[in-house]
Design a protein around this nucleic acid. Sequence first.
DNA 1: CGGAAATGTGAATGACTGTTCATTCATACG
DNA 2: CGTATGAATGAACAGTCATTCACATTTCCG
Lengths: 196, 196
Amino acid sequence: MPESRNTKAKIRKAALRLFAERGYNAVSMRDLADAVGMRQGGLYNHFEGKQVLLSDLMETHMVGLLEALDTAMAGISGTRARLEAFVRHHVSHHLNYPDDVFLAYMEVRSLDSDNRARITVLRNRYEHVLRKILEDGCTQGLFRIGDAAVHARMLLAMMTGVTVWYRDSGRLSRDEVVELYLGAALQSVGLAAVQS
Amino acid sequence: MPESRNTKAKIRKAALRLFAERGYNAVSMRDLADAVGMRQGGLYNHFEGKQVLLSDLMETHMVGLLEALDTAMAGISGTRARLEAFVRHHVSHHLNYPDDVFLAYMEVRSLDSDNRARITVLRNRYEHVLRKILEDGCTQGLFRIGDAAVHARMLLAMMTGVTVWYRDSGRLSRDEVVELYLGAALQSVGLAAVQS
DNA sequence: CGGAAATGTGAATGACTGTTCATTCATACG
DNA sequence: CGTATGAATGAACAGTCATTCACATTTCCG
């Protein structure tokens, strides 16, 4: 039983890595089994199938993302502070789980319609938190933006893109990158960044 | 011969549509032939194979993007004006050719290494134009940004994301969307948008 | 008109796909 | 000790994949 959980975790880890790197359709169950160090048939002792595995990975990630968001926003009041908390959470989470994020972003279209619907609900809930912050900032006259809904999508695309280029071996630390994105996000809504 | 060119164009058009919609690996040559209205064997009279077709589509798009950029920037001087021209060009081009852009963004990893190298050169050249503008703005003390290279990637990700959500049937026109992105981009570098 | 070149067909190729299954193995329990 | 259990195997399944090819058909040009 303990060994079982271990194998299941190894499969999930390898699948996450391979799906993110090559794409869901470009990874065969044989590739996956090889990466785990077993034969293809054994995978089905742990997952019903490839599609279930994908949606499982995605849902786990989205739920974790939403939980991390709740934690990050807990007790934060004030529109500006909430925006700062959101940006810091989003960028650092994406830096810490690049494969999860990349997969959830790229492979939505590989989900069958039922699974896609479930994931989309979670995604919309996430996006809505940011949009609400931006709308609040607008009605308070705090932010200067053209359209809250569009601006939310702009910021999410901007921040999510960090996974495409960031490497730990590069010249910038994760914290530095977070602060860079924070500065850009704040200025984009018409706020000046804090002086350091 | 005229009929040939017609078919070739039809194949490219259908391939672009299908690849962008379902992903390169999820589209079979049968699907493609069906969409064009012919049998799979005939496709090979026009393209050496699937991989060549993909890289052909991508290269055509990247070359076209760079040409459109040259046109858009021709004769524009002044750092702020150049930034405005870049943003307007990028967003409107992406609104006009969403499939091309989406494909070039999503399917780089489906290219074999030779083709990927060629495309990456073109992509870097494009990115470099924006980075140069941002660096100029920094040295002139015009922009207030933390890091020109990172900011270039932030803006490109932000703007490119427009293809993910924009629909002509929505509440906003393409021109309105361009102006929204322009305003956000200008504010993100510490400039105020022009009053309308 | 004639022949050659271009273009399309439909079947065939072998490799690979996700999934199933009888079997084996090692361990845990009474 | 016998037996139940979860896990891994390796072969087999039916289907799909990109690609090739011999053969028809169409189109072009002299």
